[in-house]
């Protein structure tokens, strides 16, 4: 009897997916769908939170008050994006404390791009332009992902993300139009960030175990390789406009496919950083854990204060 009911629930679910009807928190869903989403959304949230670190360390060193205000605002947005996403993951039954514990223990992953260092101010430009550009490419299709709360969070994120990319492009443009030393800074930052940015789209399709199921459930709308190709096609003309050279000797326009051919990503480096051996993996998590631990007394005090106030309020009512 039970198996019949189960099957019909699964059929209803598949029907909704096929008809582009969003799945909402209390709807029945396969366990694996729930697990996949919790993993993806929490990793996405962690990426936003850890993403604040490489940029945060340039806030005090931004070259002008205007740049400082913009960067501060961008970093604040990243915190907001992390919070939208954590709250979307919580609608699936994940607990905030558990997600944060998993980030700190290294059990949960975040985007490897944030394990690279920001050596000069030009890196802040390159991050906005390239990294946020790649994030937009990944995130726009997620506005139509099959899980309602995730899709709605992504709509808000995408609205805010486009300022991030533009401010980065503007930093790059200013440097490229500046003194030769500034132009050199921009080129060096571009060289540092180009390949890691291409890695942001994830492993090659044939080595991405989750892609097929995620596409069937319409969590993902495009494969990693499709998005990577689009990104290259979009960015090369922008780099040319800036007068920057793409650090890829194999980059070549391919008339037949109406897109660029480009060199092979260094997958060994990619997997190495994923496994925790990138230049900043340890530093990022240490900084996160330190901030969390040093903030513990604030969280406890706020809760104690709220409880005391609630008690006082209750006593007043009794009188």
């Amino acid at each position: 009897m039970e198996t019949i009911v189960e099957k019909s629930l699964e059929e209803q679910f598949e029907e909704k997916i096929a008809n582009e009807i969003r799945i909402e928190p209390k709807d029945w869903m396969p366990d694996q769908y729930r697990k996949t989403l919790i993993r993806q959304i929490s990793q996405h949230a962690h990426s936003e939170i850890v993403g604040m670190l490489p940029e945060g360390n340039w806030i005090t060193r931004a070259p002008s008050l205007k740049r400082k205000a913009i960067l501060l605002s961008k970093v604040q947005d990243e915190a907001g994006h992390g919070l939208y996403l954590y709250s979307a993951a919580e609608t699936l039954g994940a607990s905030r404390d558990q997600m944060i514990a998993d980030l700190h223990s290294g059990k949960a992953k975040y985007s490897s791009i944030f394990n690279y260092p920001t050596l000069s101010w030009a890196d802040i430009g390159a991050i906005g332009w390239l990294v946020d550009g790649a994030a937009i490419m990944n995130q726009v299709p997620l506005c139509r992902t099959s899980y309602g709360p995730y899709a709605r969070a992504m709509v808000r994120v995408c609205k805010e993300e486009s300022f991030h990319q533009r401010q980065g492009f503007e930093i790059m443009m200013t440097l490229c139009n500046g003194a030769p030393a500034q132009k050199k800074m921009a080129q060096e930052a571009f060289n540092r960030w180009w390949w890691p940015t291409l890695m942001m789209f994830g492993p090659k399709d044939e080595e991405s175990p989750n892609t097929e199921q995620s596409m069937r459930w319409k969590i993902k709308r495009f494969t990693n390789d499709e998005l990577r190709q689009r990104f290259v096609d979009m960015m090369v003309p922008q780099a040319e406009f800036l007068g920057l050279t793409v650090p890829d000797p194999d980059l070549k326009w391919n008339e037949t496919k109406n897109g660029y051919d480009f060199g092979e990503v260094n997958w060994e480096e990619f997997w190495n950083v994923v496994k925790g051996n990138g230049p900043c993996n340890k530093d990022r998590i240490q900084t996160r854990v330190k901030a969390h631990e040093e903030g513990a007394w604030v969280r406890e005090a706020a809760l104690a204060h709220a409880q005391k106030r609630a008690q006082r309020e209750a006593q007043k009512q009794e009188k």
Binding site: Q76, D77, G80, L83, S87, A88, T91, R299, A302, A306
Partner: peptide, 23 residues
């Protein structure tokens, strides 16, 4: 618009302002 964690209602409103109404 979404949800958030806060110790009490007052803090929830302040956090909501920062998280959901930056623009």
């Amino acid at each position: 618009v979404g949800s958030l964690h806060a110790a009490d209602a007052e803090m929830a409103i302040q956090n909501a302002r920062d998280v959901y109404t930056r623009r």
